[in-house]
Amino acid sequence: MESADYLLPKYVQIKNMIIEKIESNQFEENSKLPSEREISEKYGVSRMTARKALKMVVESGYASSHVGKGTYVHKPKLTKNLTEIEGFSFMVRKQRDGTIASRVLEAKIIEADSLLSEKLKIPIGAEVYRIMRIRIVDGVPIAIQESNLPVQLFPNLLAHDFGSISLYRTIFEEYGVKIVSSTQILDLEYADKQKAELLGIKEHDALFLFNSVSYDENNNAIEYCIHHMRGDKCSFYNELRTSSSASGSLPFRKG
């Protein structure tokens, strides 16, 4: 707790302490938070003060309240800015101090079909690395990620263990390839049985389907990536600005 926190109302101090424990994983995802009575007894405050503290934790997006059952940890969604090109690990570390892990489901060489040929601008039948991973944050599966990269650009790429190291960092540091642009498509889908089992969710739960093609400085397509991201754990946003040349021509409507 910060040294100046003692100046804050008791319920705010308690709220801050609970959130600190959530962020440091002392209270883990989906675990039950102390009840109003337990908080009241531990901190020597009234039940009303304890209730206010728990309500503020919920309103801050760190927990959800269930009538008759209690309050459970539910960390804020990870948010991705669609105007920025960044790897999954970098995106998470900007928002949390928790642990990030990957479990490799598949890492092999395949032949490009018509879709990969179109996306990566390579002939049908050309060799492509396919790397499929589950991306995990604080022990919770967040996304299934499928990366497809041309073999000709990255010799011996599969010699690296992408369960423990960054793919983007590897292609930059080992191969000198820098991603400078990307085309992206965001859609929705529902989890089939396999995806539900891998992500620890229910079949038919909502997922974000996020597809992207990334390009290097020479406009070579270096990766076609497909993300299946949990709708209850992730969100997306975009930053739009009106150009100075267009601002004067925007329609104005009264009312």
Rank of each mutant, 00 (worst) to 15 (best):
G68R: 04
K202E: 15
S166G: 09
F88L: 08
I39H: 07
D5N: 10
R169P: 00
L186D: 11
L209F: 13
L209I: 05
G98F: 01
S212I: 07
L207C: 02
R135Q: 01
N238G: 03
L116C: 04
K15P: 02
K10N: 12
Q95K: 04
L188H: 07
K77D: 01
R93W: 02
D5W: 00
H74C: 12
Q184M: 09
S65E: 10
F154Q: 08
S244Y: 11
Q95T: 02
P251D: 03
E146R: 06
D187V: 00
F252L: 15
V213C: 05
A101P: 01
L115E: 14
L7A: 12
R253G: 04
E59I: 08
F27K: 00
Q145I: 15
H204T: 14
R130Q: 09
L116N: 03
S40P: 01
F27G: 05
F154S: 10
G68S: 08
L158W: 05
I18K: 04
L158H: 11
G255H: 07
K193I: 03
R51A: 13
L158N: 09
F90T: 10
T71F: 05
L207K: 01
K32Y: 10
G163Y: 01
Q194L: 13
A63Q: 05
A143V: 02
G176L: 09
M48L: 05
T71G: 10
L120V: 10
I201L: 08
S114E: 06
L54S: 13
G231Q: 06
K21V: 02
E28G: 00
E29Y: 12
G125M: 11
Y129L: 13
V67L: 14
L54E: 12
S65M: 12
L54K: 04
E106F: 00
Q184V: 12
S182M: 15
D97V: 04
L157P: 01
S89F: 03
S214L: 14
K21D: 07
S31T: 14
R47Q: 14
E84Y: 10
D138V: 02
L120Y: 03
S249Q: 13
A107Q: 08
N30H: 13
E223V: 09
V128H: 07
Y43E: 07
L82G: 05
I222C: 01
P9E: 12
A53W: 01
R230H: 06
E174N: 07
N81S: 13
Y11F: 14
D138N: 15
D205K: 00
Q194M: 12
K178P: 00
E223T: 00
S166M: 02
K108N: 15
I142D: 01
M17D: 11
S89Y: 05
